[in-house]
C-alpha cells in the first residue's frame, strides 16, 4: 500500500509544470524515504532529479517499494482538475497498474478523485558522482529566469562566467550581443534577494538557452536558485522545495569540437 497526502497540492502541480517541458513520461520511485524521480530529456542532454522527502508530506505510507510510470501530460490533466487550495492524496495498491488522486477542498465540501493508468517504462538510472564545484552561485530565481529569457533573444547559447567579482551571463548572435553582470549582494534582512558566490576558482561555461529556459519553469517553487559549475562537468540548477525536498536539473555544457 502506498499513500501520500500533501495539504498543498499546488506544490506538486508546480513540480509538474517545471518538468513537463522536458519529460513526456517518467517513473516515480516510492519508498519509505519519499518519492524520487530521475529522468533524461528526450535528447539526453539534460537530467531531471526530483526528491520529495517522506517527512515533508502530511501523511506518508509506503509498505513496499513501488515504481509508478506516468505519462506527464495525463498527470497534468489530473492536476488541472484540482483547486489551488486543495489537499491531494495519492494512493496505489502494491503491484497496482493504476494510481488514484483524491482532491479535497479546504472546507471539505468538495471531494473529487481521479484514477490514472500507470505505464511500464524502461528505467535507466544514472550515477551522479560527487563533485567539488569551482563555484556555487545562489541568486533570486526570478532574476535568473529574467536573465535567461532576456539573453535568449540574442543567441542559442549563454555563457555563464563566474569570478570573485561576480557572475556574468553573455549571449551573442546575428543581432548583436547581450551581457548581464551581477555582483554579490548580501541582504541579511531579505535572504531571498541575495546574490552569493562561493568561489574556488573562476569558471566559464556555455549552455543551450532552450534547456536553461525550461529549467526556469521551476521558478514558482523557490525564491532562490542555486547554480553549481565546474569545468567539463554538467551544470546543476537546483530549486529547493520548502520543507519537502528539491528539484535539480543537470545540463551538459557546450564544448569546442
Amino acid at each position: 500500500m502506498f499513500e501520500a497526502r500533501l495539504v498543498n497540492s499546488s506544490t506538486f502541480r508546480k513540480v509538474l509544470d517545471a518538468i513537463k517541458d522536458l519529460l513526456n513520461e517518467a517513473s516515480f520511485d516510492c519508498s519509505e524515504n519519499g518519492i524520487q524521480l530521475q529522468a533524461m530529456d528526450s535528447s539526453h542532454v539534460s537530467l531531471v532529479s526530483l526528491n520529495l522527502k517522506s517527512d515533508g508530506f502530511d501523511k506518508f505510507r509506503c509498505d513496499r517499494n513501488l515504481t509508478m510510470g506516468m505519462n506527464l501530460t495525463s498527470l497534468g490533466k489530473v492536476f488541472k482538475c484540482s483547486g489551488a487550495d486543495d489537499t491531494v492524496t495519492m494512493k496505489a495498491q502494491d503491484y497496482a497498474d493504476t494510481v488514484t488522486f483524491m482532491f479535497e477542498s479546504k472546507k471539505q465540501d468538495k471531494i473529487s478523485d481521479y484514477e490514472m493508468k500507470l505505464m511500464n517504462l524502461d528505467q535507466e538510472h544514472l550515477g551522479i558522482p560527487d563533485t567539488e564545484f569551482s563555484c556555487i552561485i545562489k541568486m533570486p530565481s526570478i532574476e535568473f529566469a529574467r536573465i535567461i529569457r532576456d539573453l535568449s533573444q540574442f543567441g542559442e547559447s549563454i555563457v555563464i562566467s563566474c569570478t570573485k567579482e561576480g557572475v556574468k551571463f553573455s549571449a551573442q548572435g546575428d543581432i548583436g550581443t547581450g551581457n548581464v553582470k551581477l555582483a554579490q549582494t548580501h541582504n541579511f534582512d531579505k535572504e531571498e534577494e541575495s546574490v552569493t558566490i562561493d568561489l574556488q576558482e573562476p569558471v566559464a561555461l556555455t549552455f543551450a538557452c532552450q534547456y536553461l529556459n525550461s529549467f526556469t519553469k521551476a521558478t514558482p517553487l523557490s525564491n532562490q536558485v542555486k547554480l553549481s559549475m565546474c569545468e567539463n562537468v554538467p551544470l546543476v540548477v537546483e530549486y529547493q522545495i520548502p520543507e519537502l525536498g528539491h528539484l535539480r536539473f543537470y545540463l551538459a555544457p557546450k564544448i569546442e569540437e
Binding site: M40, H44, V45, S46, L47, E124, H125, L126, G127, I128, P129, S157, T206, A208, V233, P234, Y250, L251, A252, P253, K254, I255, E256, E257
Partner: peptide, 14 residues
Amino acid sequence: SKHQKSIRDYFKTN
C-alpha cells in the same frame, strides 16, 4: 563551433 555531449557521457548508467 561548439558541440554538446550527451549527459550519459558524464553520468554512467548504474
